[in-house]
Amino acid sequence: MNDLDVVEAVQADHAVLANLLEFYVYDFSELLNLEVGESGRFDYPGLSLYWSESDRHAFLIRKDGKLAGLALVQKVEEVWDIAEFFVLRAYRRKGVAKHAAKEVWSRFPGEWRVRVRDRNLPALRFWELAIAEFAGREVQPIATQVEGEDWSFFSFESKG
């Protein structure tokens, strides 16, 4: 998809990422019973860490030059992890998310993990397909519980 750009965000992009994260958290609010703060925002604590810690990377996803989403990546115990991944609704089911995810995985060779809440069925299906296509094989998730909630953890390798 040559009209798709995944650009590493710089600190000057902080406000843009924070605004996109508001849409992301809003989408999750019906699944997680999240409450908006008194400021009228959900806020995303820790966003500034993506410019102060070397094992964190923030990306803006653009389609045809327009903002389409974001990806936040972190390295935890020598494993790359998709911390947050969001594509605006207008760009969903058009290949944007899958191509952006593959681009991110390709930039960081090594072991990867993608965590998905089981009750988020559309995301679970998306990650199953995207990871299988990237890895060239089906990747079985590991079922686990985090704070009493069912999650699926996908582990795979990127050769870069």
Rank of each mutant, 00 (worst) to 15 (best):
G160A: 07
W151F: 15
A130F: 00
E77I: 08
L121P: 00
W80T: 02
G69W: 00
V146R: 13
H57I: 04
G110Q: 10
Y26I: 06
L121K: 13
K102H: 15
P45Q: 12
I142Q: 14
R115H: 07
S52K: 13
M1C: 14
R107D: 06
P122F: 11
F153P: 01
F156N: 05
A83M: 07
R93V: 03
E38C: 06
R113D: 07
N2M: 08
E111Y: 11
H14K: 07
W105G: 06
H14P: 02
N120E: 03
R92I: 01
E128D: 11
V139N: 08
Y26S: 13
P45S: 14
F42D: 05
R41E: 06
A83D: 14
L67T: 01
E149Q: 13
V96A: 07
R92E: 01
A143M: 08
A101G: 12
D150Y: 05
R89E: 15
R56H: 09
A18E: 11
I142K: 15
N19F: 04
L32P: 02
F85S: 01
F86Q: 00
H14T: 07
S39G: 06
L67P: 01
D55C: 08
D27Q: 12
K98T: 11
A123R: 03
E157N: 09
Q145T: 15
R93D: 03
V76T: 14
S39L: 07
L129A: 14
L20C: 09
E78P: 03
L20Y: 03
L70P: 00
I142M: 13
L124D: 03
A15M: 01
A123P: 03
D13G: 06
D118K: 14
F59E: 02
V146T: 12
W151L: 07
I61H: 00
V76G: 04
A71H: 00
K63D: 03
H14A: 10
F156S: 05
R56F: 05
E8Q: 15
R137G: 07
Y44Q: 08
W151Q: 08
D43C: 08
Y24L: 02
E149P: 06
Y50E: 04
Q74G: 09
F59H: 06
W151T: 04
V76D: 10
T144N: 07
Q11F: 12
L34W: 14
D5Y: 01
M1E: 12
V79G: 05
P45Y: 08
A71I: 01
E128V: 10
L70H: 02
A123D: 04
R93T: 02
F154H: 08
N2R: 12
V87T: 03
A83I: 04
D118A: 14
G95H: 07
E128K: 15
L121C: 06
S155Q: 13
I61R: 00
P109E: 10
R107M: 06
E53F: 06
F108H: 14
A130H: 00
R62H: 10
R56N: 07
E149I: 12
N33K: 12
L21S: 03
D55W: 11
Q11C: 08
